[in-house]
Structure formats: C-alpha cells, structure tokens
C-alpha cells in the first residue's frame, strides 16, 4: 500500500500540467479569468506566459482597472499589454462604493440604443418575503415623505454617476480591445443590472462611443433637469407573486439621456430585462398598474 502510494505520488510529480494540451490549459485559465491573477501567473513558467495572452475571458475589478489601463500604455513590447489584441470576450465586474448599508433596496439599469438611451432607477423602503397574512394587506401611506424623496433622488444621482463611469469604462474597453465581440459589466454588489453588449448592438455602440465620447456626469446632471428628461413615480406597495416578495415604498426614477423618440415605458423594462429578481417584476407591475403615478420630475 505504501509502495503504491509512493509510486502514485511520483507519477503525479512527473505529470500534471505537462500532460495537458494547450487548449485544455487555456480552458482552465479561461475559468480563472481574473486579470490580476492571470498577470501573476506570467511568473509561473514560460508556457503559462505564452498561453495567458490567448485567454478570452477576463474579469477586472474597478480598483485595478486604472492600473491595468496604465500598465497597457506603459509597456509596449511584452507582457499582457500588446498581446491583448485578440480578446473577444470581456466580463467586467466593477466595484461600486455607495454610501449606504448593504440592506438598502435599490437597483439601477441602463437602456442602450447604440448610444445610452436612458437610465432607470428603482428603490424601495423595504423588500421582504411574501407572507400569507400579508397578501391582502394594503399599504396605507399613499404619499412619499419629502425626506424620503430626497434620499431616493440622491441615490438615483449616485447611480447616474456610476452609469457614466460604466460608459467611460466601456469606451476605454472598445479602444483597447478592437476585436471584442461581447462585453458584460456587472456590479459587485448587484446594485446595477448586468449590462450585456454583443453582436450588432456592440458594433453600433462602439461606433458611437468612438466618434462621440460619453458626456460627463456634470453635464448629465444639467441635462436631467430639463423638462421631461427625468421622471419619477411612487407606489406605496407592490405584491410580487412571481418572485415571492413584497416591496414597500417604491420609487422609480427615469433619466432620458438621448434625443431619440424611444418610449419611456419600454426603455424602463429593457433596462431591467437582465435582472433576475423582484426588481424586474416590480417595474413590470408599476408600468401595468401604476403608470399614472410616473410624472415629470420638474
């Protein structure tokens, strides 16, 4: 038994990664995807170094995003930088820094029609599992308190700033990776709806972003103060039977960012289409039953 174990150990020592063909090692590195880890793996061996630039899926946290971009422009001939041309798929996870506790219930989503069409923000005072006894209970407050409205508006504007940041990252990504065929952006705390761009939509979006850089958050703020560019709605309570939740004190805020004629209601739905939780259901229900509550902000 001991002999067998020893023999087995020796076999393993001889083998491991050498046994794997390049495409299998690549498959493993693709699963790692985290760009910081991948860059560290350049140190493992020359074979690793030759394979890492062929990895097609990368995850990048925002706290290393700027260093990553800087490292791309610092160095010209070797390493991760110039070899990243063939990247075709990029998954970015960006770290947001909202000044709220983790329990606060809100989420934002963006609608792209080549350029950024609009941003929709939804927040609620509470989100709880649906209980039987609660099913018939009607929320009593029909009006939102002034300070709550203020709080929601403040959060919505923070989300707006993140949306612009995502847009900036997107334009940097397009510039850096010309062969990109699909890109997704997610928020590490899931406060932003996953953004997925691919195919023709990505091509159009790249064209717009390259020719017309994204407007800054400052100009964005001025923009939404114009008549009809921002809308807000309040619903005291929503029963969400599909996801099994009850949402109370729900505010929906919509910022129109472009001059196209795309309908607000459809844009709100599209912004949350990738959401897999109660937020999409809430948007659907607000648009079905409480559409009248959504009014121009100013």
């Amino acid at each position: 038994m001991e002999h067998w174990a020893k023999k087995k150990k020796n076999e393993e020592a001889e083998n491991q990664f050498q046994r794997l063909p390049d495409d299998v090692v690549l498959h493993i590195l693709d699963k790692v995807s985290d760009i910081k880890w991948l860059c560290r793996c350049f140190m493992v061996s020359k074979r690793f170094s030759s394979l890492i630039p062929r990895v097609q899926t990368l995850s990048v946290n925002s706290n290393i995003w700027d260093s990553f971009l800087k490292s791309c422009s610092d160095s010209h001939n070797e390493g991760v930088n110039n070899t990243h041309g063939p990247i075709r798929s990029l998954n970015l996870e960006l770290i947001s820094d909202f000044d709220v506790d983790d329990d606060s219930v809100f989420k934002w989503g963006a609608k792209f029609m080549a350029e950024l069409d609009s941003i929709t923000f939804l927040c609620a005072k509470s989100l709880s599992r649906m209980m039987k006894s609660e099913a018939d209970e009607d929320a009593t407050e029909n009006e939102i308190a002034q300070e709550e409205l203020f709080h929601s508006a403040k959060l919505a504007i923070r989300c707006l700033e993140y949306a612009f940041w995502w847009l900036r990252v997107l334009s940097q990504v397009f510039a850096k990776f010309p062969m990109l065929e699909s890109v997704t952006i997610t928020d590490w705390k899931n406060k932003g709806v996953k953004l997925c761009l691919g195919g023709e939509k990505l091509v159009e979006c790249r064209h717009i972003l390259v020719t017309k850089p994204p407007i800054s958050p400052k100009r964005g703020k001025a923009w939404w103060q114009e008549q009809g560019n921002a809308m807000v709605g309040y619903v005291p309570g929503l029963q969400l039977p599909i996801s099994g939740y009850v949402m109370k004190g729900v505010t929906i805020v919509y910022f129109k960012m472009s001059d196209n004629d795309f309908e607000a209601a459809t844009a709100m739905l599209d912004a949350f289409a990738e959401d897999q939780g109660p937020f999409l259901e809430a948007v659907v229900q607000i648009l079905e039953k409480h559409k009248d509550s959504i009014k121009a902000f100013f």
Binding site: N15, F17, V80
Partner: peptide, 18 residues
C-alpha cells in the same frame, strides 16, 4: 509540479512588467 524555466533575471523582468 511545473518547472520554473525562467532565469532569475527573466523572472524579475516579468514581475516588473506586471
């Protein structure tokens, strides 16, 4: 059990790049 096939100089260079 991957063999380190870098020279110390190469290893330092790779580290510096990244």
């Amino acid at each position: 059990h991957v063999e380190n096939d870098y020279t110390p100089e190469e290893e330092a260079a790779v580290r510096e790049e990244n």
